[in-house]
């Protein structure tokens, strides 16, 4: 089971939108049963981000977790979301 964490400022607004998009994509690709999706606020994620296989953030993250996190803004601005899906796909099959 691949664990994906989606984070944003509150763990409510933009992360929900990104999570829903990923969920739809996973359903379309029939990968939904290999992945569990989580969401949280960035303040909470700081203490526990390393528990997840993929961390996607729509907000700026503190330096210590920078290398671990994928920028999720393409999902909301609608530009370049394809690459994100590619990264997720690779993780799921690796």
């Amino acid at each position: 089971m691949i664990k994906i964490l989606v984070i944003c400022g509150t763990g409510v607004a933009t992360s929900t939108m990104v999570k829903e998009k990923i969920r739809e994509w996973l359903e379309k690709e029939k990968l939904i049963h290999q992945v569990s999706l989580f969401q949280s606020s960035v303040a909470e994620a700081v203490n526990q981000y390393d528990m997840y296989d993929i961390v996607i953030s729509t907000t700026i993250v503190p330096d210590e977790m920078k290398d671990y996190v994928i920028d999720g803004t393409p999902f909301i601005s609608g530009l370049g979301g394809e690459e994100m899906y590619q990264i997720i796909r690779e993780k799921v099959f690796s």
Partner: peptide, 14 residues
């Protein structure tokens, strides 16, 4: 125009 949630993770803000 987007949600300022995009910025609140900045270390200075937090």
């Amino acid at each position: 125009g987007m949600d300022s949630a995009l910025a609140v993770g900045h270390p200075a803000v937090l």
